[in-house]
Simulated assay, not measured.
Amino acid sequence: MRIFSSNLAQGTVLALCLSGLASARTLSRRDDTFDWTNLTASTSLTLSPCYDGFQCARLMVPLQYPHASAGEAQIAIVVLPAKVSHDDPAYLGPLLFNPGGPGSSGVDAVVENAPVFQAVLGSDYDVVGFDPRGVGHSTPALAFFESPAEALAFFAPYPLDANESVSSLGRIVASAHLLDDLASKRGGTIAESVSTPAVARDMLAITRAFGREKLSYYGVS
């Protein structure tokens, strides 16, 4: 696995550029009319044109790797193609990116910040954004609330300041326990299948779909 750390020169620049993704939306090239449901999920990387100069795919992976009978998940992938062919010795392979969160969309981050990636990393990588399972355009969706109104009511007190009063920290802990209880009761198998080990396996599956065994990854948190 090749991991790009922010203690490297180019990593520092990229981390600084991406530290305020909200402000970087001025660079957005996103086309909200693109319909991900029109892409047929496949165990191979079937790329189709999307957005403006990107390629997209939905990669089918096991919902639970140890239990094939649990079903499948479909990982949304966007590729900012390298400007060299895959046969060129200069080609460096796919570089997977995700902005962390947890819960942020790697697809939207790459689409919205493509000029930053190419300026800092060069054009010898396929820059690959993906939505981790349970996030964004990946399916199945993970939802704990029965309606937007219920979600708004639950999160109305946020953000909570732990130093606001003597009871603030207790309210934060209680809310976390309530959310955990909702996940257990309503998330079912999907909630059980959203984990760091599962996403790591998905990342390796994406890399292998490109015909590579070594994973190159840049993550921001």
Score class of each variant (00 low, 15 high):
Gly136Phe: 10
Arg30Thr: 14
Gly129Glu: 01
Gly93Phe: 02
Ile190Gly: 00
Asp126Glu: 08
Val116Tyr: 02
Asp52Ser: 14
Leu39Arg: 06
Asp31Thr: 13
Leu121His: 00
Ser105Cys: 10
Gly11Ile: 05
Asp32Gly: 15
Met1Gly: 03
Pro89Glu: 03
Gln74Ala: 06
Leu160Ile: 02
Val61Ile: 05
Phe144Trp: 14
Ala73Tyr: 02
Ala149Ile: 07
Thr40His: 09
His137Val: 10
Ser19Leu: 10
Phe210Cys: 05
Ser44Ala: 12
Gly211Ala: 11
Gly53Pro: 14
Gly93Pro: 05
Gln118Val: 07
Leu152Ser: 12
Arg212Ala: 07
Ser104Glu: 03
Ser175Phe: 03
Val110Tyr: 01
Val199Ala: 09
Pro66Asp: 08
Ala109Asp: 01
Arg186Phe: 07
Ser147Trp: 11
Asn7Leu: 09
Ser123Gln: 08
Met203Pro: 01
Phe130Lys: 02
Gly101Thr: 08
Ala141Val: 14
Ser184Met: 15
Ala90Tyr: 10
Phe130Glu: 00
His137Ala: 10
Ala156Glu: 08
Leu92Thr: 05
Leu169Met: 15
Ile206Thr: 00
Thr40Gln: 12
Leu14Lys: 00
Thr139His: 11
Arg133Tyr: 09
Phe130Trp: 05
Asp32Tyr: 15
Ala153Phe: 06
Ser19Trp: 11
Thr26Met: 15
Ile77His: 02
Arg201Trp: 09
Gln64Pro: 02
Leu215Ala: 05
Ser221Phe: 12
Asp181Tyr: 14
Leu169Phe: 06
Cys17Ile: 15
Glu146Asp: 13
Ala73Phe: 07
Gln10Asp: 09
Ile190Cys: 03
Ala183Gly: 14
Asp161Asn: 07
Ala9Met: 13
Phe117Glu: 01
Ser168Met: 02
Leu14Ala: 00
Val135Trp: 05
Gln74Thr: 07
Asn98Pro: 01
Gly106Cys: 03
Asn98Val: 04
Pro62Leu: 04
Gly103Pro: 04
Val79Leu: 10
Asp35Tyr: 15
Lys83Phe: 15
Pro197Asn: 02
Val13Arg: 04
Ile190Arg: 01
Val120Ala: 04
